[in-house]
């Protein structure tokens, strides 16, 4: 373990370090990687998929997929285009209803996952194609992540009754903190639709974090980014995990970023899970090399949600 990582880990355990300093340390320390504690095998399972089958008409998207994600883990799902990665995230978030199998969140099984209650179950996600509210400011977009908490009705909001005002102030304050954390403060008042792509991706991450989820699903958070932006975002994801103790499920094409970022990796190919293990295990798995690592890079933007 490098000195600065050691320092960071120790400091983090005892005192609250401002996020920007933490980030600074993380950037300048050796880029973390696997000497950092992989969540122990005895950590409870936060999210579990059992025997998920999904097909569209005759096209099989997922077939008998099992996946167990432990608390506090950064779990990557990789695979070639069309392997079913996004479908998997959509099944977990209830956008798709699986034909067979179920999703268990904190031990409770669902089929399908109730999308409307997702945020209350402690799950937040981002989308492969940007899904921001273009007509709202960055701050309002991030504050929208708190929508599931609101109890006040529109009349009390119009009248500005104490509860409505408290809710609004609370949402904005939490959103403000996340915006600080992800260094989006200069853009807080800009309309989300006017920001460059990389920043919009980060705003989406902020919106998801604002919900204070226990499980965070990231559907290609780095697609279309430059290498620098990717590393930056990877650092943010790691920091968010450490700071808020969340479990992260991440889909990403860039194998380099994934290897450095994740604790464990599941590999999909043609809708089946062909490998599951630590980055080292995955890197040396012959089936993975055949199915994925051996092929040239894909057209990243060419596929739909």
């Amino acid at each position: 373990m490098s000195a600065s990582n050691f320092l960071l880990a120790n400091l983090g355990a005892e005192v609250a370090i401002p996020p920007d300093i933490r980030e600074h340390l993380a950037l300048h320390g050796e880029r973390l990687e696997h000497d950092r504690a992989v969540p122990r095998p005895d950590e409870p399972v936060a999210l579990e998929l059992r025997g998920i089958d999904l097909s569209f008409g005759g096209v099989v998207a997922l077939q008998g997929v099992d996946l167990a994600v432990r608390h506090g883990e950064i779990r990557a799902i990789i695979g070639p285009n069309g392997a079913g990665k996004s479908s998997l995230i959509n099944v977990i978030s209830g956008v798709y209803r699986p034909d067979r199998g179920h999703v268990a969140i904190d031990g409770r099984a669902y089929r399908p996952v109730p999308t409307q209650k997702l945020a209350r179950l402690g799950v937040a996600r981002t989308f492969q194609n940007l899904a921001l509210f273009k007509g709202l400011s960055v701050l309002d977009n991030v504050a929208a992540g708190r929508a599931y908490v609101g109890r006040s009705n529109f009349l009390s909001q119009i009248a500005g009754l104490p509860r409505a005002r408290r809710e609004q102030a609370d949402a904005r304050e939490r959103a403000g903190r996340i915006i600080d954390f992800l260094h989006l403060t200069p853009y807080a008042d800009r309309l989300a639709g006017t920001l460059p792509y990389g920043l919009q991706k980060r705003v989406e991450l902020a919106r998801a974090l604002a919900a204070e989820p226990r499980i965070l699903l990231l559907d290609e958070p780095m697609a279309g980014m430059t290498a620098t932006e990717k590393n930056e975002l990877a650092d943010y994801v790691r920091l968010a995990r450490d700071e808020y103790a969340i479990t992260v499920v991440l889909i990403e094409h860039d194998i380099g970023v994934v290897m450095g970022l994740s604790d464990r990796i599941a590999v999909l190919d043609y809708g089946r899970k062909i490998a599951d293990g630590t980055p080292q295990e995955i890197a040396s798995d012959q089936r993975v090399i055949d199915a994925y690592l051996g092929v040239p890079p894909e057209n990243e933007d060419g596929e739909g949600i």
């Binding site: 997702l118 309002d140 909001q157």
Partner: peptide, 30 residues
Amino acid sequence: LSYRLVSSQTGRNFIAVRDNETAARIIGVP
């Protein structure tokens, strides 16, 4: 009153539903 409405949480929910219904549902907008 309409102006109060559009600058309230409900008004922002309107815009969220308009701009991206799926995302709105997932973050818990009814």
